[in-house]
Design a binder for these strands. Structure first.
Length: 309
DNA sequence: CAAAGCTCCTGACCGC
DNA sequence: TGCGGTCAGGAGCTTT
């Protein structure tokens, strides 16, 4: 039975609903790619900030400082989108849990897309395109930082490995996990270890690597002469890459009527599938109970106790 | 220092 | 149908 999750929007498949919406690295990357054609090279003609804060306060004169700037390039760092501006500042965007970017269709000014309750920032480009940042739960944030301060700023200073970077491999991952007595599940959720993973993709990566979520992180690092860390690094890359590909095809194949970016259908092996058999599993689900759900550091963990050791 | 717990927030869902 | 309770989670902060 297929199980789909649509990132960044409450979504029903007809037999299962997910309300937890989690922009993790693949969703953030999909949003970045969707924004790029509308923002890169464009001047921000109008910026409207509609409340004083999100998870943290907006910086002083946020809208005025952003307005009139040209966006040179959009980058991603972990779950952050970095919009590099011509004046040397970086417009930092984090979607938190429920943050969405909505690109209004051309001609929005007819009132068809009036700002909603949770539209906190509204951007209009010199091409007349309007982008709304909507975040019901306000776990997201936006700020402005000099480009030169990114590396040392508290938000970025201690960020962990970039899982899609060239230097992400079993050796680097093992080094990051070494000495950690916390469960591998919790360690991977820590942005200071690997930057960009969230609850869904941690569960999926551990499943594909065949590692039990309860194992201590340092044991994973030390196991099998590094082969286990290597497997895990490979699984993380694969899982994230597949999800980004799914997001990319959603951008390519469907013009979202709402213009909302970053949500796409994607199938998960274990996440949200408590009691179901894992893919290709031939064990007796009646007897073994299928995919298990436990709670670790206050978050749901889904795993297969037979395939993950 | 590390690790676990608490907290922010709203919407969806469930049971009555 | 309405209403209150529960759950979801990213990540900084607080506590141990």
């Amino acid at each position: 039975m297929p199980c789909f999750h649509r990132a960044n929007i409450a979504y029903g498949t007809g037999f299962r609903y997910f309300t937890g919406v989690m922009p993790e690295l693949p969703e953030v990357e999909t949003v970045r790619r969707g924004l790029a054609p509308v923002l890169e090279g464009r001047c921000l003609r109008r910026v409207e900030q509609r409340r004083p804060d999100l998870r943290i306060p907006f910086p002083e004169n946020f809208a005025a400082r952003l307005q009139g700037q040209r966006v040179k390039r959009l980058d991603r760092l972990g779950k952050y989108i970095l919009a590099r501006l011509e004046d040397g500042n970086v417009w930092v965007i984090h979607l938190g849990m429920s943050g969405r970017m909505v690109i209004d269709p051309p001609g929005f000014s007819d009132g068809a897309a009036a700002p909603g309750r949770h539209d906190h920032v509204i951007i209009e480009t010199d091409q007349g395109r309007r982008i709304r940042f909507n975040d019901a739960r306000r776990f997201g944030l936006m700020t402005l930082l000099p480009e030169s301060e990114i590396a040392t700023h508290p938000l970025f200073r201690d960020l962990g490995l970039e899982p899609l970077g060239n230097d992400f491999n079993g050796v680097a991952l093992a080094a990051a996990l070494r000495g950690k007595k916390t469960p591998i599940k919790s360690a991977l959720l820590d942005q200071h270890v690997v930057a960009g993973l969230g609850n869904i993709y941690v569960c999926e990566s551990l499943y594909h690597a065949g590692i039990a979520p309860l194992r201590q992180a340092h044991r994973v690092a030390a196991a099998a002469k590094g082969a286990q860390a290597e497997n895990l690094a490979r699984a993380i890359r694969q899982v994230l890459g597949d999800a980004i590909a799914a997001g990319g095809s959603s951008l390519r194949d469907h013009v979202q009527p709402s213009g909302e970016l970053g949500y796409f259908q994607h199938r998960f092996a274990v996440y949200g599938r408590e009691g179901e058999p894992c893919p290709g599993c031939d064990c007796d689900v009646r007897r073994k109970g299928g995919i298990k759900r436990i709670v670790q550091s206050g978050r749901s963990t889904f795993y297969c106790a037979i395939r993950q050791r």
